[in-house]
């Protein structure tokens, strides 16, 4: 089986005046369809940078990133945007919902950007699975943190992305809501076959994944089966 995500000798160097910081230093990493992979590591080890690079939000300095066979390093900005639109979903630590839209609007806008119009069936399946049916008319400010993250989760998967990237999705949640959101990520993975890469520094969160990889100083240091 071909990996849905593959990085080869991936480097990301940030340059600021005369200072260079190597956030990624030759990352080699593969994710196969249907996997739920947790990337663990201490703060500053390059986890978030890895997520941004494999999500096409920034270009690597060296190396290759293949998402569903597309080399992100070889794509233009517009092509990476298009790939993100069709193949990648993001969940952020701070939810990042659009404050003026309702929960329904926040989910529907992803479908709108995707360009295939509103799919009521997919919308119903996802919102039911994430327990949002009764909260769709509320704005983010009227939702709890857990509910906001579930809306963000729905927004990320509504267009059936090949890859869901979650950046510390429980970092702003209490234990109970963290468990709910992590449980839903696992449910999405198991019931819909959603491929997930989750960045976390929390071992309890990582335990929900089917595989855990560790990062340190910009490199993947091992690959440990979680189950």
């Amino acid at each position: 089986m071909e990996p849905i995500l593959k990085t080869e000798n991936l480097w990301k160097i940030y340059r600021s005046s005369q200072v260079e910081v190597s956030a990624l230093q030759g990352v080699n990493f593969e994710v196969y369809p249907g996997e739920f992979v947790a990337v663990m590591g201490p703060s500053g080890c390059g986890k978030s940078t890895l997520l941004y690079v494999i999500g096409g939000l920034t270009q690597p300095t060296r190396g290759r990133v293949l998402v569903d066979g597309n080399d992100l390093a070889a794509l233009s900005d517009a092509e990476r945007t298009r790939l993100r639109r069709h193949k990648i979903g993001f969940v952020f630590q701070r939810f990042n919902l659009l404050p003026t839209l309702t929960a329904r609007g926040n989910i529907a806008i992803a479908q709108h950007i995707h360009g295939n119009g509103f799919d009521p069936h997919r919308f119903a399946v996802i919102t039911r699975m994430l327990g949002l049916t009764e909260r769709l008319q509320h704005r983010p400010a009227e939702l709890s943190g857990g509910e906001q993250q579930r809306v963000a989760l729905a927004r990320a998967v509504i267009h059936e992305p090949k890859l869901l990237l979650a950046d510390e999705p429980t970092g702003n949640l209490d234990t109970r809501n963290s468990e709910i959101v992590l449980g839903m990520l696992r449910q999405l993975n198991r019931e819909l076959g959603q491929t997930i890469v989750m960045i976390t520094h929390n071992p309890e969160a990582a335990a929900y994944a089917s595989r855990v990889v560790h990062m340190r100083d910009g490199v993947i240091v091992d690959g440990i089966p979680a189950d």
């Binding site: 945007t81 993100r84 639109r85 990042n96």
Partner: peptide, 16 residues
């Protein structure tokens, strides 16, 4: 600004 970042992450083009 953050909303713009979110829309970009969702795949919104510059024209959008």
């Amino acid at each position: 600004t953050r909303e713009i970042g979110v829309l970009k992450a969702l795949g919104a083009s510059k024209a959008y």
